[in-house]
Design a protein around this nucleic acid. Structure first.
Lengths: 222, 222
DNA sequence: GGTTTCGTGATACGAACGTATCACGATGTT
DNA sequence: AACATCGTGATACGTTCGTATCACGAAACC
């Protein structure tokens, strides 16, 4: 029965189970046994492929971040063959909003990890830091390109605008997550902010004041 | 020894201990025994005044939110006798940034509670929802007043701008918390956004491009 | 073909947690 | 003065958790 087995694939399978159960019951509530059951393997196996719980969690975080990066890249790619800077920035920021179940899970778990990292040196040392900085640099660079092409309102500080955009996107993402905002309304807010940064070519966002019905996607929230 | 004792005062004392130990080790890591030790009482007493851990946590959350509300109110009051809408909005948003140890603790724990509430119906039912909505309404109303006094750039949707401001502030707060941003830089970003909403009377925020050295306030973060 | 290594299950262990129980002294009431 | 109630300590209970141990069958290697 015990053939030679692909370790990387096993680890991936188990990490996926971790993410699923964490999304369902909260990261704080997942135990080794839960992950094992979700993955359909024995507790021993989880111990075997990840010696300790901490290593499992770190691997899960890596996977999560990697999946997110891929999703962002796909969205940017879908923005067209040679999209303008605004289209790319927009795709990037929109990909950061928890609009579907997958990105919802990402947001929830990423926030959980971030909170844990505040009191856990091992997590704080993780590339939690690098990724946001990379996003900031990318958006800054895009805004600089837009500036060079005279696509921006004059007098803007590219880096400051990039930081603002990312913070806005993160804040909107959180508010969607907790059911305070609908993805649609958050998108409107984001677009209207972009309209204030980029020169308008007459195609401003429709000013329709869509009301903000409570998010129907979040289960327990009125 | 056992005189008649003020229950409310005891509960407050214990809740403060909860907040302290939660800030130090993370909300997920606090146990009844930790709270008891921090408060300098026996485990039994914590059980006595709060029958269950859940009730203790809920009470701690209430206290936290209340303290935050008071701090915001104090900041707004400190904005002057009859401040303009912008000053009030600014005080409100600035109070929401984790600039000192106390507001840092608030942000950290509030975020922890928010994450927990995603998978815990008892927490989700808590006034987590009311408070942000109240803030949104307040800022919206202030912006409307500003509009009426012709203090805003024309063509803005007050509610949409309010939502954007609050999301921006929340996002900046989180980035300060994780050590990605300094309070100073976050403040700059916030001001520069306000400058784009309010009519400028010539006293725009100084355009000094202060660099963004890594946050020295966060211990474990480079 | 014998031996070593790998993959896997069953089970045990010690710690920590939330909660419950028992006892008892002090206080307030009548 | 007798009694009921309140505040408090010590300690126990049952669960759950992460981790460790033991055993064993199948493959890989020489």
């Amino acid at each position: 029965m015990p053939k030679r087995v692909d370790h990387a694939e096993r680890r991936a399978r188990i990490a996926e189970a971790l993410v699923r159960v964490a999304a369902r019951r909260g990261l704080h509530a997942v135990g080794m046994r839960d992950v094992a059951a979700e993955a359909g393997v024995s507790l021993r196996l989880v111990q075997y492929y990840f010696e300790t719980k901490e290593k499992l969690l770190l691997f899960g975080l890596e996977r999560l971040a990697q999946g997110f990066g891929e999703r962002v890249a796909a969205r940017v790619r879908a923005a067209g063959d040679s999209p303008g800077p605004r289209a790319v920035v927009e795709a990037l920021l929109m990909a950061a909003l928890p609009t579907d179940e997958e990105s919802r899970t990402f947001h929830q778990l990423y926030t959980s990890y971030a909170v844990l990292s505040l009191n856990d040196p091992a997590l704080a040392a993780q590339p939690f830091i690098r990724n946001p900085d990379a996003a900031e640099d990318a958006v800054t660079e895009l805004l600089r390109q837009a500036q060079a092409a005279d696509l921006l309102r004059p007098g803007l500080d590219a880096r400051r605008e990039a930081v603002g955009l990312l913070a806005l996107s993160a804040g909107l993402g959180t508010s969607i997550l907790v059911g305070q905002r609908t993805p649609q309304y958050a998108t409107e807010v984001l677009h209207s902010h972009l309209d204030r940064i980029f020169r308008t070519h007459g195609n401003g966002t429709p000013a329709s004041g869509t009301p903000d019905p409570v998010n129907p996607m979040v289960p327990g929230m009125p």
